[in-house]
Design a protein around this nucleic acid. Structure first.
Length: 573
RNA sequence: GGACGUGUAGCGCAGCCUGGAUAGCGCGUCAGCCUUCUAAGCUGAGGGUCGUGGGUUCAAAUCCCACCACGUCCGCCA
């Protein structure tokens, strides 16, 4: 809560003076009026009607007369059943601008997570094909979440898990062994993960004609598990190709990992935990000899944790991995950024860990996100409607380049490439995090590359305009006469800036990013309108200096918020 | 069949947790604005039974119930 709001709440409490109307309720009732002309805080008087035995508008009138205005409140005025408060412009300007100026990149951050650790696992690919659009949503969310927590002083352990074994991987290996003729990514001039992915596609095609290939793949899994030298060598080779390709793609996006997990290294772990549960009586052995968790009472059905032949299942290794992570990092929170298809799996996993008596199970959090669909419908690898991550990144960069060439014909190649890269990434990242993660979303390729509207480039452009003014101004004033910021649009900008830390705080609490995205759109839009209407550099000196301070603050907050979404900025566009 | 989620303007989305003042934004459409700090911009117009029906309430897009539509999941797969 801001200082202003707190002051208003306290003054209201005194004016109301009702014994059965607890003071702490007042602050909770204060809300933001629908329009700026109506003030900064509004107090609805409906709930007082019964106690005062008067109509809400009458109560609002009486409170307006009775209330002792706090120092920084210029007016308390009744609007129908509401009592509205106006924050004094100068006080607002002074408070906000001084704070942004002194805190700079720290404005909006906190030390709430100091000494605490979060582990974030994201994008976990199956290593038989290149990354696609779904991974991009995952990565963009994961990157933003990492920043969000780091911003609050958490130690963030950035991880991924490579699902690097199993049927799909063996299928790609089998096809390569069978028809590869010793080709390599280099010999075919293909990005190495695409090279492997193509062999997987080849397998699917051939298997449609020759069903015996499926059983051959299963045979290969068995050999892999036995440690067959030839199969293991083939696996190593193709896996390295895939990982190398991933590194290139994720590198473009700015992914940095502190720890990488390989399923192949612990896919047979976790039995001990399951047997421990059996011993404690929280899990049961079923009639065929498998081990089951009965989660019916939690509405989660029955879940098999160990096969009757004693081998592990998907969830078994996840039990192990969660514990291994806790033992290593003693995390205060562990986030799994995984598609909503796995909602049930994670609820079952967390519940099982809790049943095993691990208190830290409640620190686990599944950041579930919806599918990314195309305007034509769902992505289907069989129908070739999957949007490849590399292709998309290339396409975005190309479009940014075209746009830049149109505008700045004489831009040097290096500068052109750098700008196109930043612009393309902003387009993608913002498109992905601007939507509530729980929702399925439609990825419209032509819209994502359009730079009109609610897009990353729009935000970058607003930032570049602000920086351009600051650059032309040269030195920024040390002292500012805040009274000069008397324009209505200036007050709106200041109010937005003041609210930024709260937006960040709420985002952290909800482990979400789209609130920050919405805030950015609002701030950029408000600034663009201000830019259009109010001249800065042409203004009289004192006024210019005050406006420069405001523009500087806007640029700082834009940059801070973009940083939280893992979006880099450009000083010029 | 069950569980979970989603349904707001032609299209894409905020708002729902924590109920309040004529329901916001973008794209598209239409009409304007570049001799003045970058027009990737700004201003304005038009566009809505907030899926449907009940309920709670002084007040419901928001809370509750039922129904409908769509999506995902419900395997000793991952």
């Amino acid at each position: 809560m801001t200082d202003f709001k707190q002051a208003v709440a306290r003054a209201l409490e005194k004016a109301i003076a009702l014994p059965d109307f607890p003071a702490d309720q007042v602050a909770g009732l204060l809300e933001a009026p629908p329009k700026p002309e109506l003030g900064d805080y509004a107090f609805p008087c409906f709930k007082l009607a019964a106690a005062f035995k008067k109509a809400p508008p009458v109560i609002a009138q009486e409170l307006a007369k009775k209330i002792v205005k706090p120092a920084d409140i210029s007016e308390a005025k009744a609007f129908g059943p509401y009592l509205n408060f106006f924050v004094q412009k100068q006080a607002l300007a002074e408070k906000v601008l001084q704070q942004v100026r002194s805190e700079r990149e720290k404005f909006g951050s906190s030390s709430a997570g100091k000494g605490k650790t979060i582990v974030n696992e994201y994008y976990g690919p199956n290593t038989n094909k290149p990354l696609h659009l779904g991974h991009l949503r995952n990565i963009c969310l994961g990157l933003a979440v990492n920043r969000l927590f780091a911003n609050h002083g958490f130690k963030v352990v950035r991880t991924t898990i490579y699902n690097d074994r199993g049927a799909a991987i063996c299928k790609a290996m089998l096809a390569y062994e069978r028809w590869g003729e010793g080709k390599t990514p280099e010999s075919e001039a293909l990005k190495s993960d695409h090279f492997v992915g193509d062999w997987y596609v080849r397998f699917v095609k051939e298997a449609a004609k020759d069903p015996s290939l499926e059983s051959q793949a299963i045979e290969m899994i068995r050999k892999w598990e036995e440690g067959d030298k030839r199969v293991r060598a083939l696996w190593r080779k193709t896996l390295d190709w895939v990982l190398e390709g991933y590194k290139e793609t994720t590198g473009r996006l700015g992914v940095v990992l502190d720890k990488e997990y390989h399923e192949s290294e612990f896919y047979d772990q976790g039995k001990q935990m399951v047997e421990e549960g059996l011993g404690k009586g929280v899990f049961q052995r079923d009639e065929k000899g498998g081990i089951v968790a009965d989660l019916e009472e939690y509405g989660l059905g029955k879940k098999h944790l160990l096969r009757s032949d004693g081998t592990c299942l998907y969830i078994t290794q996840d039990l192990y991995l969660a514990k291994a992570r806790y033992d290593e990092f003693h995390f205060d929170k562990a986030i799994y950024v995984v598609a909503s298809e796995q909602n049930l799996h994670f609820r079952q996993l967390f519940r099982c860990l809790q049943l095993l008596g691990h208190a830290w199970a409640e620190r686990l959090y599944h950041l579930s996100y919806g599918l990314v669909n195309l305007p034509e419908g769902r992505m289907k690898s069989r129908e070739g409607t999957v949007v490849d991550a590399d292709d998309l990144l290339d396409e975005l960069e190309l479009l940014a380049k075209e746009e830049l060439r149109k505008r700045y014909a004489d831009l040097k190649e290096k500068e052109l490439n750098e700008r196109a890269n930043v612009i393309a990434l902003s387009a993608l990242k913002f498109y992905m995090v601007r939507v509530d993660p729980v929702k399925d979303m439609v990825f419209n390729p032509s819209e994502s590359i359009s730079f009109d509207g609610e897009t990353g480039p729009y935000l970058l452009y607003a930032y570049a305009r602000a920086k351009s003014i600051l650059a032309k101004a040269g030195k920024l004033p040390k002292k500012v006469d805040y009274v000069r910021l008397s324009h209505e649009k200036e007050k709106r900008l200041l109010a937005l800036l003041e609210g930024y830390p709260q937006v960040v705080h709420d985002s952290l609490a909800a482990v979400t990013t789209h609130k920050i995205a919405q805030f950015l759109l609002q701030l950029a839009s408000e600034f663009n309108a201000y830019y259009h209407e109010v001249p800065v550099l042409q203004a009289e000196t004192q006024t210019m200096e005050a406006r420069l301070a405001l523009v500087e603050a806007v640029s700082i907050v834009l940059q801070n918020a973009l940083h939280l979404l893992a979006i880099d900025v450009l000083e010029r566009m």
